[in-house]
Design a protein around this nucleic acid. Sequence first.
DNA 1: CAGCCTATTGGGAGCGCTCCCAGACTGTCT
DNA 2: AGACAGTCTGGGAGCGCTCCCAATAGGCTG
Lengths: 342, 342
Amino acid sequence: MSSRNRPGRPPTLEAVAQRAGVGRGTVSRVVNGAPGVSAKARAAVEAAVAELNYVPNPAARSLVTSRTDSIALVIPESESRLASEPYFSAVIRGVSTELAETDMQLLLILVRDERELRRLTRFVGAHRVDGVLLVSVRQDDPLPALLEELRIPTVLAGRRTPVEPLSHVHADNLGGAAGAVRHLLARGRTAIATITGPLDMDVGHSRLQGWRDAHVERLVRPDESLVATADFTEEGGRAAMRDLLGRRPDLDAVFAASDVMAAGALTELREHGRRVPEDVAVIGFDDSIVARHTVPPLTSVGQPSEDIGRTITRLLLDEIKDPALPRRHLTLPTTLTCRETT
Amino acid sequence: MSSRNRPGRPPTLEAVAQRAGVGRGTVSRVVNGAPGVSAKARAAVEAAVAELNYVPNPAARSLVTSRTDSIALVIPESESRLASEPYFSAVIRGVSTELAETDMQLLLILVRDERELRRLTRFVGAHRVDGVLLVSVRQDDPLPALLEELRIPTVLAGRRTPVEPLSHVHADNLGGAAGAVRHLLARGRTAIATITGPLDMDVGHSRLQGWRDAHVERLVRPDESLVATADFTEEGGRAAMRDLLGRRPDLDAVFAASDVMAAGALTELREHGRRVPEDVAVIGFDDSIVARHTVPPLTSVGQPSEDIGRTITRLLLDEIKDPALPRRHLTLPTTLTCRETT
DNA sequence: CAGCCTATTGGGAGCGCTCCCAGACTGTCT
DNA sequence: AGACAGTCTGGGAGCGCTCCCAATAGGCTG
């Protein structure tokens, strides 16, 4: 009578125990794969679970374990980017793939303004996730510090500065950029301009540094009049190109820190009557779908975005399992894909 | 002594009650904005909440209310698409925007294979979400039926067939396609081919139907030799174009059911020496970033993807609030953006 | 001033689970 | 045979919250 099959409500641990003729403890042990259960008891429980179609109530479990079995992927981005950046989609795919191996769930949180930031703070403060993945952080982003303070495991995709203390995974932006510029240099280009991303982001900064390094290797002093800063948008890339063309009409190559900006640059070059690649060679960064569709198709530095997603997830799961783990920093290689703009 | 400030653990309702000198019930009422609390008590509680930095434990709440305050966005897609389709990103943005108004959270679930489907089933069976948003369903998708059986509020973005019983929101695919074809007809094109999406998806089917309807309006019998089916990928679009060109070398226009396929078609046309738009006019669908970057820039039918995301969210929240609500079906308008391929 | 109603309040019960400990039951060793 | 170590087992306690009801405090009426 006490634990009758309650109509309309899912079966509980208790019900399974009763059905299997064992105690709650035993059922719990079986369900959680804990050791110390006889084969007979295990079989009985498994049968009862199957018959009743029992699924543990996560809220009840969470209440006592204070785990949530979910992590958050936080994307702090101004409106525009998630739309255009295949990078985020790829990272999401990677995270999801890795998570599919576990029984953790993924919460997606877009933080676009002050209000959404407060919402996130509350959310994390309420311990609704076991860990946080932070994608695309800026130098002055308040989030990492906040998360550290809340002592919640956090892994970044990308880093704030070259000396990022938090665990993070990032593409070899510096090496990738340097490789692109070397490639241009090797093809005899001499006035190689660069369109950078925002310099308050490490990606922006590092890719510019790669451009510099490749020059320095050749004992050429990088000429800052060949540098224009933009914001990873197409329009920004276009404006930067216009700017560069005005300043340095003699330029014969451009390395853009993203495909989208490169696409903008391409448009501008065309309007100025410069032929690509004859007059000006162009290289982008990301090797995204955009690169394949420009005319001519864009040579681009690819980063292993999906792999970044997978890797940050793995690091985070490790840190959740053992918060005392030392922070880890991984750099993933980039690859240059030559198409027709060089 | 009984409820001392427990070091390292977040404050509980009980602690707040003690601090404010009221009972648990009162604190609960204040925190949940329930009526029937005196101004004085409310103020005392609010002060205590602020002092202790109290945040309710969602697991405990969920255990008793059996609500989770979160919804799932399920994207059943084969590997390739999430990468290339800005559509999904836009929908996600819309959902997120709408959710930001509430204190609901968004779970993102990618279902790419049988295993992930089982995982989702378990997950929904465990009542880990209050509702499900289902994007891009195929006719034979087992998910909608499953969700209906589990009696969990569900809203679809897109529909399975024109007589979809579940609540859903979709773009006016038929009207948009018909509009595109009319536009082509109006410009004097006479042999208008179409590259369709998979015909087991309503989007594929409806856009083809629009192509047919526009012909029928003009009392022209749609000629099926002008129809080629592809799979929304670039390569597929390209192959379909090749096919069409072989079958109907006289074609003078192509309506493709997605920008990505149109991009593939464009490449193929170029390789066959057809000039666009002089020899062959081309229209795509989605009006995505790809459309702006093809050469020449692609005329395309835009769908309000972000708005779709917002709308499905609103419908779902309503249905969660009142599951007895009748199912609703909304069609959102498309817009034709003319660029240089027509 | 008694009597009755309403607005507010406190706190018991219970949501479904894990944790843990005491007890039962084996088998082995002396 | 008795003691002991190990293996399994059941179930009490408690996680932090909401729900609800009985109790209290005012306020109003006659």
